[in-house]
Amino acid sequence: MPVDPLLLGARGLWEELARVPVAFAPAGGVTVVVSQDSGLCPAGWVGAVALGGSSIVTAPARSAALVRDALAGLSPEHVVNDTLVRDVLPVARTLGPAALSYVAPEGFRPVEAGVLPVEHLPAGHPELRRLEMAAGDEDAGEAALNDITSPVFVVREHGEVVAAAGYLRWPRRTAHIGVLTAPAVRGRGLARVTGSAAVAHALAAGLLPQWRARPLASRRVAAALGFAELGSQLSIEIDRSVRAGMPGPAG
């Protein structure tokens, strides 16, 4: 059966981000490789991405053997389940899991701006910093408006920016979408409005929009815009006391 082009694009992106030769197994399964400079996770961590019933995992050299043995008994979907991974690995911290969603032009469901028009600002504009302060460090860090390379699409209320979205150019012509809404106006569809504008801009540029989200509310926004949830990403920090006592790789 042919693989969905959307899934092929997503897999190609994460294979490149692994920064070593690796591929999602067509028949499924978990592939663990050594990568000292992996883009699947923070430096020195273990990164796991599951897409379409297959997973790739990157690990530093000193923990690769442990990770490979521990994950051998897990399914591709289970290696991005932080609870199950903690059962088989000495985990200090995790980031995620975060759902990975993508949309093709024919699947996109744009949202009209309505009574609050959408404007755009350059990344780094002072008004965006005020929105980040209102949203709090965790949500602002997730949206990463400061990293956006596209115009930032915003909605104002009473002159203040209360919602914003844009994207960062990732490898393989991917547009990594970031959306942030002020707590006081959440639940009113403003994330869909600004997110729609950012996605439309990315598609017009011939890019593949990616929506990475942990909160259910954000995942619902992606689904409303036509994104298909294809998999998940999990980053794992191995407990240092265990890693320190492990032998180096053979050979």
Score class of each variant (00 low, 15 high):
L121D: 02
L145Y: 09
F153M: 05
G124F: 00
G12N: 14
E237L: 13
L203Q: 09
D37R: 13
I148L: 05
V111D: 01
E142W: 00
G29Y: 01
P5W: 09
V154Q: 08
V88L: 03
A25H: 08
P171L: 13
D4V: 15
R220A: 07
T174H: 11
V199H: 01
F108L: 13
G136P: 02
P26A: 12
A163I: 06
A143F: 07
Q210H: 07
P21L: 14
V91Q: 07
G141F: 01
G28W: 03
E160N: 04
A213I: 03
L13Y: 15
D87R: 05
T174Q: 12
D239P: 15
A250L: 15
A213W: 00
V30M: 01
M1S: 15
E132G: 06
T31C: 09
H158Q: 12
S235A: 10
P76A: 03
R219G: 03
A18L: 13
L230V: 12
A197C: 07
H120Q: 07
H125P: 00
D69Q: 14
Q210S: 10
E237K: 14
R129Q: 05
P171Q: 15
R68D: 12
L66Q: 11
A134E: 12
V30E: 02
A223P: 05
L100M: 11
M133H: 08
T94Q: 06
L207Q: 05
R220M: 06
A163N: 04
R86G: 05
L95S: 05
Q233R: 08
A223Q: 12
G28T: 04
R156K: 09
P2G: 15
P209S: 09
V80M: 00
D37A: 13
